[in-house]
Structure formats: C-alpha cells, structure tokens
C-alpha cells in the first residue's frame, strides 16, 4: 500500500518554434557558386548579415573536410550557417552546425524596395490534411493550424502542429499540438498507443499514459498546466466528461 502521497511533479515545458531561414543550395563547381555569392555581396554588402542561413547539401557530394571548408568559406564572407540539411549525419562533426530536417518552403519577406501595389497574399491554409499513414521516422510540422491524418502515425514518427491534431487511426508516435502557445489545442486519435503527447509545451510520455486508456479512442487536452487524457466516446454519447 502506498501510504505516502505522490510528490508533486514539476511539469517541464518544451516548446517548439519555427523560424524562417535563407536556404543556400550549393552546386558544383563550388568555386563558381561562391563567386555568385561574392557577386551578390558586391551588389548589397550587408545582405546576409544577421540572417539565419541553412545550407542544403543535397545537390552536391561533399566529404566532411569539404563541408568544413565550405562553412569556413562562408564565414569569411560574414555568412554564418545555423544548420545543414541534405546530407548524412555521419558527414557532420560536433563542431559543425546541426543537421536539420523537416524544412518547408515559405515566402521570404522582401527587404528590397517593395512593389507599391502588392497583390493580395493568398489566404493561408489553417489546416493540413494527410491522406496516408505517417511512417516511422517522418516528421510533419505545420505551425499554422490543425493537422488531420487519415491513417495511423507510426512508432518513431512525429506530428507537430500549431493547432490541434486529429488522427483517424492509431497514434503510435509523438504528437505535439499547440506549439505556438495555443493551450486550447487538443489531440484526438482512434487508438492511443502514443510515445509522447505534448500540448503547448507540456508533455507526457508513454509511461504516464494510463494503462486503461491504451488502444482506445482518446483525446488529450490541457486543464491549466495538467494534461488530461480521457476516453473519446465515438458513439456520440456525452462530450467532455473529463
């Protein structure tokens, strides 16, 4: 019998945040590509200063030494690389910028003279729909709103959303909702076997999820700073009887 009360556990906050970076995609010959950079710098000397730059190496085959050399070449031009993508992790050393994955295209804000009558920006989508299962190792990041998956989310996969996450299948991986500070975001799934759930930074791992809930339809939501995971009644009875 457990006579002692459980010590109050301090929930640790982990937040996700997305930033927009310039992506440089070097092509061979590298020397020629660097010359292009120099030409841009000659036209606007401070263009890249202070801007976060990501190096996309997927179009070239560089050895570890060549990558180090390239980073140094860019540093000499006052371009600091904050991350690298498109290369095997084995090619990077601990002193190099970290390997990034899951980058998505986005429009860059113009700093050069704006056109006086900019065409109306297309309405941004607030919900992402995935019509096939999310496989182990895949990472879906959608900071603008909800994510819906028609299928299961595999063990070792992760969904990161600014809004809520709806999974019409089994959640076996990680789901992190409300990453932009949205505490009312929720996570719904038809079968919960999740490795980790997080809403607005507050997270619970698989061992914290009650055994009685496993493999059943469930929803997760924040009540203050406590994450509640409750059965989801799919037969329409009741609602938030948390």
């Amino acid at each position: 019998m457990n006579a002692m009360a459980q010590p109050t556990r301090q929930l640790v906050r982990m937040r996700g945040r997305s930033y927009v970076a310039f992506v440089f995609s070097p092509v061979v010959p590298i020397v020629g590509w660097l010359e292009e950079i120099d030409a841009t710098l000659a036209r606007s000397p401070g263009f890249f200063v202070g801007k976060p730059v990501v190096l996309d190496l997927s179009a070239v085959e560089l050895s570890q030494t060549a990558i180090a050399h390239l980073i140094t070449s860019l540093e000499q031009r006052n371009i600091r690389v904050l991350g690298i993508e498109g290369v095997d992790a084995g090619h990077l050393t601990m002193s190099m910028p970290p390997l990034l994955t899951g980058g998505r295209h986005c429009l860059l804000a113009q700093n050069e003279p704006k056109e006086p009558n900019e065409p109306q920006a297309k309405p941004k989508p607030t919900s992402l729909l995935l019509e096939s299962p999310v496989r182990s190792g895949q990472s879906i990041v959608f900071a603008e709103g909800d994510v819906t998956v028609l299928g299961s989310v595999g063990s070792g996969a992760e969904i990161v959303a600014g809004g809520s996450i709806h999974i019409y299948g089994t959640l076996r991986g990680r789901a992190m909702a409300g990453i932009e500070g949205n505490a009312s975001a929720r996570i719904y799934c038809q079968k919960i076997e999740a490795e980790l759930l997080a809403i607005d930074g507050y997270y619970q791992t698989a061992e914290d999820i009650s055994a009685t809930l496993r493999s059943r339809p469930a929803q997760a939501w924040l009540a203050g700073d406590i994450m509640r995971i409750t059965p989801l009644n799919l037969d329409g009875r009741g609602g938030n009887n948390g």
């Binding site: 096939s132 999310v134 496989r135 182990s136 190792g137 895949q138 595999g154 063990s155 070792g156 996969a157």
Partner: peptide, 13 residues
C-alpha cells in the same frame, strides 16, 4: 515492423 515502417516511408520519399 517499426523498421519496415520507416523504410516504407522512405520508399515514398
């Protein structure tokens, strides 16, 4: 099974 799932994801990308 988990590794197979990973590989399936890679086959699709």
């Amino acid at each position: 099974v988990r590794d197979s799932d990973r590989i399936i994801g890679m086959l699709d990308s």
